[in-house]
Design a binder for these strands. Sequence first.
DNA 1: CATGAATGAGGATTCATTCAT
DNA 2: CATGAATGAATCCTCATTCAT
Lengths: 214, 214, 214, 214
Amino acid sequence: MTPIQEFFKQEMSRRGDLTSKQKQILEASLTLFAEKGFEKTSTADIAAMAGVAEGTVYRHYKTKRELLLAVLAPLMAVMPNMVAEFDENTVRKPITTLQEFVQNLVRDRLEFLDVNYKEVKVLAGELLFNTDLRREFINSLLSKTEVFSDLTKTLDRLKAEGKVVDWPTDLILQFTLSTLIGFVGRQFIELPSELTKDQREKMTVAFLVKGLTP
Amino acid sequence: MTPIQEFFKQEMSRRGDLTSKQKQILEASLTLFAEKGFEKTSTADIAAMAGVAEGTVYRHYKTKRELLLAVLAPLMAVMPNMVAEFDENTVRKPITTLQEFVQNLVRDRLEFLDVNYKEVKVLAGELLFNTDLRREFINSLLSKTEVFSDLTKTLDRLKAEGKVVDWPTDLILQFTLSTLIGFVGRQFIELPSELTKDQREKMTVAFLVKGLTP
Amino acid sequence: MTPIQEFFKQEMSRRGDLTSKQKQILEASLTLFAEKGFEKTSTADIAAMAGVAEGTVYRHYKTKRELLLAVLAPLMAVMPNMVAEFDENTVRKPITTLQEFVQNLVRDRLEFLDVNYKEVKVLAGELLFNTDLRREFINSLLSKTEVFSDLTKTLDRLKAEGKVVDWPTDLILQFTLSTLIGFVGRQFIELPSELTKDQREKMTVAFLVKGLTP
Amino acid sequence: MTPIQEFFKQEMSRRGDLTSKQKQILEASLTLFAEKGFEKTSTADIAAMAGVAEGTVYRHYKTKRELLLAVLAPLMAVMPNMVAEFDENTVRKPITTLQEFVQNLVRDRLEFLDVNYKEVKVLAGELLFNTDLRREFINSLLSKTEVFSDLTKTLDRLKAEGKVVDWPTDLILQFTLSTLIGFVGRQFIELPSELTKDQREKMTVAFLVKGLTP
DNA sequence: CATGAATGAGGATTCATTCAT
DNA sequence: CATGAATGAATCCTCATTCAT
């Protein structure tokens, strides 16, 4: 499992105290929110899919919106890490080339985005119009991408060694993240391609490596 | 005005037959949809902001969803162009370098995304959960990015000349578009930056040029 | 019609702009609130009795509670007058005896309480547990029973002439009002009596006159 | 302790078999019913305040309404006594004057109403809209105020001696009770007064004595 | 064409009551 | 006996849509 995915699982298991009903409810909510969007999902739908009574949903979550937040909470907690953390220990030797750096990042994050596709979709839809949540999300993001984050440190080192172009870290992250999102987004809209996913992943790495070379 | 923006205006003016009330309704809808999202906007809200009676809205648009489609129609019509069209004539000499190519593309599209920010936001929200619209959107997109589109032709020429990496056109467009979207998205979430917008635009061009160089 | 009843009608007609549907809704609400109490009356009940759709109720009154307030408003406006106003002009000569005073008061108020029985009942039920409304009610009551209210003036004159016991006005009003309420309350609980209503009314006047004589 | 209060305590202690949980439940119910009204009090509220599980409430009382009746039962049992009983033994010599009669009555009942303020409030709210309970209440009241009740006997004696006006007993009780209720009600709505409670009590006695003098 | 009152289906939420542990 | 999770009917309220004026 990739490091980020690992983080996520830990976050989820922190909720080990969830009853089975709660899990069913969260699962159903996630699925339906991802499928039809939050607003178009009725609590009756959720109850039906979860196989519980509507009242049961409200016994565990005071409002529908609270249910949404519960669904998003693990992701909200991990997302900033996804942008800021970088686990050098998963590879034997420390990162010494841009190629290594990008490759690690891409593989790790792509899988995460892929596996947690539903959560990401729901979060995206919510961030689009929910100003409050957006603000909160950005703040937690900013608090993570500080100078001493793993990723920042690794990047700075590579910059110092002249292995990465000397642009602000946040811009580099922006390019990287948007390229990754583009990759996943493309799958999402199911655009056909003459290439395999692996080939596209390789080219994505190549694109980033070249783009970020000084 | 940039070529894409030009297209858009033409698309809009094709609706020259719209009464002033209709324009008010569309304008109000766009604003509210972009602000709160489609589902959370009530037709009463729209009528109020447009300064017309609720019945009047329904005189012009049979359903609320039809109103959404009317709001998105111009963008839906132009978006594929944005990905496929490339107006070489706006510069005196034809494009001969990747640098020129990217620069033109970025300037043009960025301004468009910026100016039509609301439409794009509404469309994004809609594409996320509306499968039908998404399919339609993709189809029109595919039909545009055919081999004989301006952009494809220019790219192929540059590839032949060894000035652009030899990746499939759709992948190159994916990288380009996602980088642009990242640029705009960053503004959307109002992340602070130590750089000016101009500086960031220059670096974005540089990133793309390097990334797409063979 | 008694003076107080007159006041009430004026208050009601101030709502001359009510549509017929609104009147039906208010009428039904009043009847049902008086019959079953506010909490036990459902908006569906009201709509059914008023012969309109449930949505129509909410078109006119934003919440069920607002509907309650609309029902009570005229009474809330007039009640304080009932305690404070005293129309000496309805009798040819000014009041010169306690007997005259009490007789006028009793006849007037009793009829009012009798005719507006439903409103009073609903108000009573509401004042019992709704602290806010109670406070508001008391305030408007206090603002009315100031030294220069008709009733206070008349009472003061009679006191000065030694025709009424020299107790604070508010206490005299308390005795009077509670005696009146007892009269009406007795009818409300439908206690049988060997006397006619007229006889009871006469004795009530006699009781008050004696009780308030110096 | 006043005789009526004494009655009440006896009634309450008749429930000596109540477990402590039951007492907590009844206590919480009483408090909440008096505070917010029966309908607006949820069984969850009650359980929470009583410090027991919601199921425990239902183990002791089959329905919420039954709980209400249990809360009101002691008062329902004693209220009629309040109107009918008159304990001459608490004073050494038998009552010989109207003044003595009224004074005893007022002091006794006022304190009772004061101490059992919550119960009275809940009962009042219930009698207002609950026809069945009202009928039951009236019946038990009528059965008590029969010719041989203490109070009736004392009153008849005083009437025979020309010390009390010769009105029907029920009317005299009506006047007395409503005057007492007015006294207590005034405190309930927290009307300010320039007099002390003692002064008001004295004047209330005076008012009744004068009003009931032949 | 424009209006806005009326509609009623549907949705979120509450809560008395039950029952397995 | 006590518990508290589960239930689902009932309730308040919203809102897209219709239609008579």
